[in-house]
Nucleic acid binder design. Sequence first.
DNA 1: ATATAATCGGAACCTCGGTTCCGCTTCTGC
DNA 2: GCAGAAGCGGAACCGAGGTTCCGATTATAT
Lengths: 194, 194
Amino acid sequence: MQPAAAISATKPRQQRADARRNREAVLESARKVFAEHGLDAQIDEIAAGAGVGVGTVYRHFPTKDELLEALAQLRFEALAARAREALEARDGWQGFVEFMTYSARVMAEDRLLSEAMDQRSAICGEASRSVGLLDLTAQLIERAKADGKLRADTEPCDVPGLICGIGRAVRSAPGAPAMTWERHLEIILAGLRA
Amino acid sequence: MQPAAAISATKPRQQRADARRNREAVLESARKVFAEHGLDAQIDEIAAGAGVGVGTVYRHFPTKDELLEALAQLRFEALAARAREALEARDGWQGFVEFMTYSARVMAEDRLLSEAMDQRSAICGEASRSVGLLDLTAQLIERAKADGKLRADTEPCDVPGLICGIGRAVRSAPGAPAMTWERHLEIILAGLRA
DNA sequence: ATATAATCGGAACCTCGGTTCCGCTTCTGC
DNA sequence: GCAGAAGCGGAACCGAGGTTCCGATTATAT
C-alpha cells in the first residue's frame, strides 16, 4: 500500500485523460447544437456531433439541464469578461455601448441564450449571479450616467430585459425581411440616451 | 320535399346548436390556457376548461396548430381593429403611440402571442397578412412621420420586431424585479422619436 | 504484458402529450 | 315520440425524446 495515495481525502482518483477529452468534445458540440436549435436541441445530435454515444454525454452531465447550466456558465463568464473590458473604456457611454453591442450580438446569434433567458430564467439567474454580472452592469451604468450621456433613471435590471428583447425579435415574418439586431439595438440605445 | 332546402348546394346541413356552443367554449378556454402556459399548453387542460372531452376539441380543431391558428386570427383581428382606431387619432404620433401601447400590453399579457410570434412565425405571418395588419401599420407610420415626430427611417416591419421584443423580455430574474413592459415601451418610443 | 477499474456505446425503456377510435348520448325533423 | 344523424367523452394508441443499463473497450499502474 502506498503512503498517501491511498488516502481518499488527498487525491484518490484522477479522471482518465480520454474522459476529460470527451467532456470537452461534448461541451463544444453542445455549444454548437444548442446555438442552432435552441432549447430543444436533442441529446442524440449533441452526442453524434461530439463523436461519442449518448451514454457518455450522460456520464458527464447527468441531465440535459446540467449540460445547459454548464453552457450558461460559460456564456455568462464571457459576458462578464466583456463587461470588465468595457469598464476600461475612456468614455463611460462608449463602454456601455460596447457592452450592449456585444451582448446583443451574442443574444441574436445564439438561440440557446435567448431561449434560456426566458424559459430557464432560474439557470440564467444563477449563472449571472455567480459571475457577478449584475454588479458589473451596475458599474457600467453608473459610469455612463456620470458622463451625463445615459438616462438618469436607467436601472441595472433594464439591461438584461432590453437585450433579451433583442434576441427574441421575430425572425423573418414571411414577406417582409425581419428586423436586424443592429437596428433594434440602435433604437434602444437612442432611447436610453439622456 | 321542400323547394330549396333539399338542394345540397344551398344549405344541406346546419351545424347543431350544441356543437356551435361547444366550439365557442373551446375557443374561450383555449384563449385562457394558452395565454397562461404559452405554446405548451395541453389539450387536456383546454378540454377540461371548456367542460368537454378531448375528442370534442379535436372535432372542431383537428390539430393543435389549427386551434392555434384560430386563436391567432382572433388576436390579429383585434390588433387590426385597434390600428384602424388609432388611424383616427388627431395627432399622427399620438395614434402611433396608442397602437404601440396596446400591442405591447397584449404581447406582455399573453404568453401565446409572444411565443407564437417567434416559434410559429408562419401562422402569425398568415394571420397578420389576412387582416392587413402590415398595411395598417405602414399607414400609422406614415402619419406619424408626416407630423415629423417619428424617425424618418422607421419601417413597417420594425413594429412587430420591437413589440415582439417587449413580449419576450426576461420575466423576473431571481433577485431583481424584472423590467415592466411599460418601461421597455417607453424606452423604445423614446428611441423612435425623431 | 496484465490485471483492474474507469469509460464507453447505443439499444432498450419510460414518460409525456398529441391524436384516434368507437360505443354512447343528444339534437332535429317528421 | 321516434328514427337517424350529428356530436360527445375519454380510454387507448403512438411517436418522440430524455434517461438508464450493462456487456464490451481502453487507459493506467505495476
